Amino acid sequence: MLLLILTCLLICAALMALVWAWQRRRGVASGLTQEKALYTGFVADLERRQARGEIDDIQAQEERAQAARALLKASETQAAVAPVKPLYGYVALGVTAILSLAVYLMIGHPDQPDQPYKQRLQTWTRLAQTNPDVLPPLAMAAVLRQGQAGHANDVTYWLFLGRIDMLAGNNYAGAQDYEKARALSPGTFVAWSELGEALTFVGGGTSGPEAVQAFEKALQRDPNDARAHYYLGQQALAEGRYEAARGHYEAALKTMAPDDVSRPQVLEALNSIGQAEAAAKAMNARISGMVSGLEAQLKADPENADGWARLLRSYDVLGDTAAHDRARAAMQAHYANRPEVIADILTKAQTRVGSEGEAK
């Protein structure tokens, strides 16, 4: 009981310190003002790097556009916050602490130690046998894992455990469960889209090669697998393959019921394609214009090694492999007797946009 009281007092003291610190910061500029200051400083630094020749015009425009989009997003989400009197904050803190202590004393058991995990697991097991619907996924997963030894070769067991682990947020454990089920019955394994989803979650939302392969196998088994279509659409959208993404999203929607809870998410993804495609086209158009000017400069002055690197990198951004190969052949022909210059140009051409400033 004494420990509980001390903990409550420490929490109250910490909250009061936070309120005091917040009151001290009332004169600080708003979040939008800080974003504008950061943007101004970034643009100034960008112009200095551009003047020193550390980045070219294409890179400068790309970084400036990215910073402007970040500022625009901040301005759109900035909300006005009405000032609050300090007294209200202190009163609210006191009331919260008193009510919390009173509720705990009424319904809690401060005189008893915490229930050991083994005892809690026994309670969960009884609930799973009598009323499993009230058991949260995390507790259900713990109950099911008690049967690993007895069901080591049971495909159905591992599939069910995988679904429960995913519901509980145990993404890595869920992926392992599905992998075990697949290893036990590779010829009859059917949960390919579930395995792909688990691997995607483990990858932080990105479908790696293994996840993509799982989704593709899911579609080979069932062309109407909405889950596989959705994640393959997400991957295609991230890679700029807009028609492929649109096809996957539309295929997913055709197989979904009108009241499917995932339907709004797929619709939102489908509607985002147009905006992403328009932004990509606009950026490619700007880069294409800059590339035309750069090509003219290199024809007049082929000794511009940095210009060749920028040209090759620009073609990579545009995805124009044929033009990239032609420019590379022309550059190699010009520097045929200077292989060290060719190597330097190719290294610079592979440098990620904006990394020159980071390196310095």
Score class of each variant (00 low, 15 high):
residue 220 Q to I: 04
residue 172 Y to V: 14
residue 288 S to T: 15
residue 143 V to G: 03
residue 324 H to T: 00
residue 202 V to H: 01
residue 157 Y to K: 03
residue 135 L to Y: 06
residue 14 A to P: 05
residue 128 A to M: 06
residue 182 R to D: 13
residue 224 N to V: 02
residue 80 A to V: 13
residue 151 H to K: 13
residue 319 G to F: 01
residue 104 Y to H: 04
residue 299 K to Y: 04
residue 23 Q to S: 10
residue 94 G to R: 01
residue 17 A to M: 11
residue 145 R to Y: 03
residue 146 Q to K: 06
residue 351 T to P: 09
residue 59 Q to V: 09
residue 257 A to G: 13
residue 319 G to T: 03
residue 35 E to Q: 07
residue 231 Y to D: 14
residue 83 P to V: 08
residue 169 G to N: 05
residue 171 N to W: 07
residue 271 N to D: 14
residue 302 P to W: 03
residue 309 A to R: 08
residue 121 L to F: 02
residue 243 E to F: 07
residue 68 A to H: 09
residue 85 K to L: 14
residue 271 N to G: 10
residue 274 G to S: 12
residue 340 E to R: 15
residue 276 A to R: 15
residue 177 D to Y: 10
residue 8 C to Q: 10
residue 78 Q to V: 04
residue 41 G to R: 03
residue 181 A to S: 09
residue 260 D to S: 09
residue 346 L to E: 13
residue 265 Q to N: 10
residue 239 E to K: 15
residue 266 V to F: 02
residue 342 I to N: 01
residue 341 V to Q: 05
residue 313 R to P: 00
residue 67 A to H: 04
residue 326 R to C: 09
residue 313 R to L: 04
residue 57 D to Y: 01
residue 120 R to M: 03
residue 104 Y to D: 04
residue 48 R to F: 01
residue 288 S to C: 11
residue 56 D to I: 05
residue 119 Q to S: 07
residue 228 A to F: 03
residue 123 T to Q: 11
residue 321 T to V: 12
residue 237 L to Y: 03
residue 126 R to W: 00
residue 33 T to A: 10
residue 152 A to D: 10
residue 346 L to T: 04
residue 60 A to G: 12
residue 96 T to C: 05
residue 36 K to W: 09
residue 184 L to T: 08
residue 223 P to D: 07
residue 232 L to F: 06
residue 148 Q to R: 12
residue 153 N to Q: 11
residue 107 I to G: 00
residue 144 L to Y: 09
residue 277 E to G: 02
residue 237 L to S: 13
residue 259 D to N: 12
residue 104 Y to G: 07
residue 254 K to T: 04
residue 331 M to C: 06
residue 15 L to V: 01
residue 106 M to K: 10
residue 353 V to K: 00
residue 178 Y to S: 11
residue 96 T to K: 00
residue 21 A to Q: 14
residue 61 Q to N: 09
residue 66 Q to I: 12
residue 325 D to M: 06
residue 281 K to C: 00
residue 145 R to N: 12
residue 162 G to V: 05
residue 152 A to K: 07
residue 126 R to F: 00
residue 116 P to K: 05
residue 31 G to C: 04
residue 245 A to N: 02
residue 41 G to D: 15
residue 75 S to A: 15
residue 12 C to T: 11
residue 93 L to F: 07
residue 109 H to K: 07
residue 327 A to H: 01
residue 64 R to C: 04
residue 169 G to K: 02
residue 286 R to P: 06
residue 10 L to K: 08
residue 228 A to M: 09
residue 143 V to T: 09
residue 304 N to P: 06
residue 79 A to I: 03
residue 258 P to E: 08
residue 188 T to N: 13
residue 204 G to W: 01
residue 167 L to A: 15
residue 55 I to K: 02
residue 231 Y to I: 15
residue 270 L to N: 07
residue 101 L to V: 15
residue 82 A to P: 07
residue 6 L to Y: 05
residue 121 L to W: 04
residue 353 V to W: 00
residue 295 E to L: 10
residue 37 A to N: 10
residue 225 D to L: 08
residue 111 D to Y: 10
residue 296 A to W: 02
residue 338 R to H: 02
